[in-house]
Design a binder for these strands. Structure first.
Lengths: 231, 231
DNA sequence: ATTTTTCTTTGACTTATATCAATCCATTGC
DNA sequence: GCAATGGATTGATATAAGTCAAAGAAAAAT
């Protein structure tokens, strides 16, 4: 973790949270004065679950994984986060602890802003408050979907969904470098790594994907969508 | 559903949302003017998943179940809701649709307040906005816990947890009338109803609970807690 | 009170999925 | 270049949990 501000100031920055767009010049200056940047190497921990949550963290570049540390060392990977993402978690407003961990996958540049500042702005700017509520809601909404997916779909459906998530929401391509290990895909879909391997093999046999250890190419997206929806 | 206001006005009401406590007299009057009450019989639908969410709904008396309708008719029961609970769900701020259904278990009295009013107050009252954020956060937090529980614990742990939830958070007693069917307990713990029966039988054999079809008595709470935590 | 419907319970069976163990492969460090 | 490490893959096996079918028990409706 190397710390020196690279982004000169918030006004010029377009890699931060969309909700900062509606701030006044003074509010933005308040944020700018009270932030610090940090850089993380791959696999370094950005947020540790259970530690006191004093800062909102915004990724400005790179890719990170958001995951919960569960029972007996088993993790649950919630999602991948790229720039323009607020990382903080609901725990902040419940018990002032982060309720998930975040670790860098690629080199990650992140901006730390004290929650005192965020709260000040929420109190003074109703639009920002609503934006904050929308952000929280969207994350909660996805979590609701996630519970359904994890509890009601079978492995094929869960894996198909993860592959589509990577293509549509993370790498924005149907032919992507897979930055996660089978283990991590398993943590995301609640399957054993061996099961991930097996079912990827099946999908490959059926010519739905082409799977290399470190990359995936989606060959038949419609079929993959059907599998994802049928469960 | 029978509709006529029973509660004379918000100021006198102590069955509503804690977050209304901090409102000014004028704000409270605004709420009071724009609310209407409704009464629901057991098993009647209060909120239907997917329908447009124009109102925040507050239960003032009775018990309701909050559940998501999943794939191929399989439900996931999220929690039970009693008085002082805001029902609305994150969908409201995402796509203006309720993302879960709510159905009355006992006779339920509920208060409907338009979201326009809620938003007006959020914009004008920072304390209320923060309270709203806290409420959203707490629900999201519980959802995070729920995913872990459902995905990482085995059936014994999940059932034990549900039984403790009823005792500690719903009926406030270790000897309670069970208002849910085995089917519904299954929907809550992601198990088949037959599995619920079997494992309740096992817990009974081990003298940890006494289970009647419509009531439960917890005999050895410590042991139940261990089972719940060990998974 | 009797029928009907809705729950509960039980046993036999099937299936999905995890676990274990071994091997293979690809990087990375020396 | 060669060991060392961390992942990927495979097959065999174990187990958790679901499904099906049928019978009992309660509750609700007539």
């Amino acid at each position: 973790m190397y710390s020196e501000n690279i982004i000169s100031n918030c006004e010029a920055c377009n890699r931060c949270w969309a909700n900062f767009k509606g701030l006044s010049v003074e509010e933005l200056e308040l944020v700018n004065k009270n932030r610090y940047e940090a850089s993380f190497n791959p696999s370094e921990i950005i947020i540790k679950q259970g530690s006191p949550s004093s800062n909102a963290i915004f990724i400005t570049s790179g890719l990170a994984k958001v995951y919960m540390e569960g029972y007996s060392g088993k993790n649950l990977l919630i999602n991948l986060a790229e720039h323009s993402t607020l990382l903080a978690g609901p725990g902040v407003h419940v018990n002032s602890r982060y309720c998930y961990s975040v670790a860098a996958i690629t080199q990650v540049q992140a901006c730390f802003i004290s929650f005192d500042v965020i709260r000040t702005i929420i109190a003074g700017n109703p639009g920002f408050a609503l934006g904050f509520i929308e952000d929280l809601s969207e994350k909660a909404f996805r979590m609701h979907q996630k519970v359904l997916n994890l509890t009601q779909k079978k492995m094929h459906g869960r894996l198909a969904e993860a592959l589509l998530y990577f293509a549509d929401e993370v790498f924005h391509s149907d032919d992507y470098q897979l930055l996660l290990t089978r283990q991590e895909i398993g943590e995301m879909t609640n399957m054993a790594k061996e099961s991930v391997v097996r079912i990827m093999g099946e999908l490959e046999n059926e010519k739905i994907i082409k799977a290399m250890p470190r990359s995936v190419k989606i060959l038949n997206k419609d079929k993959l969508r059907v599998i994802s929806e049928k469960g």
